[in-house]
Amino acid sequence: MMHCTMDDLLALQAGEASGWARAHVADCAACRAELDTLYKRVAQLKALPALRAPRDRWPAVRAAVLAGRERRRRVWSVGSLAAAAALAGVLLLHPWGTDLEAQLVAAQQRSATLESTLQQVDGDGRVMTGREAMLASALEDRIAVIDGQLAEQQAKEMAALDLWRQRADLMQQLVQVRVTRANYVGL
């Protein structure tokens, strides 16, 4: 005699079973017993005692939060100043203007525009899913790393241009996560 599989039992539990499974379980004592056991097992799982963390992780969370705030404050302000200084240096060295300068300015403007968009989006308090929050935090971390590199780069034009482009691309992805709720941004 053919009995219900575990798939059938779970479907019965979920109220999604096939006609055959519903009819069979009505006639078969063994499968009814299996279904009862499944119900009991799930009830037992729900009744398992709550486990508590053996160590308090709040001090570590607090330290990381405060360190992160300090790092962002330092990096964003120093990074912006250094990047502006680097740009000013480039323009002073080449007052006649070059294609590279134009590209650098364009990359900076794009980054600044996206950053401004992001600040507006942040202000409206949108709800993020866990996945979106993870993507956003990963992108923010990468932007912070680039800001740190920009702060150290000074007036190395090609490197600065590359970093500003990367920064604008990451900022674009961050805006996508926050605004369009994209599930995938290439991470």
């Binding site: 486990l51 992780r57 939060v65 949108r126 709800v127």
Partner: peptide, 28 residues
């Protein structure tokens, strides 16, 4: 599990501004 606890709250701190109060905070 302890590491996940820590990572979760770092994420909560980072993203709490995005929580708009729709649905239970615990669900988020």
């Amino acid at each position: 599990a302890e590491d996940v606890l820590q990572e979760t709250f770092l994420e909560v701190v980072r993203s709490i501004r995005q929580y708009r109060g729709e649905g239970h905070l615990w669900g988020w």
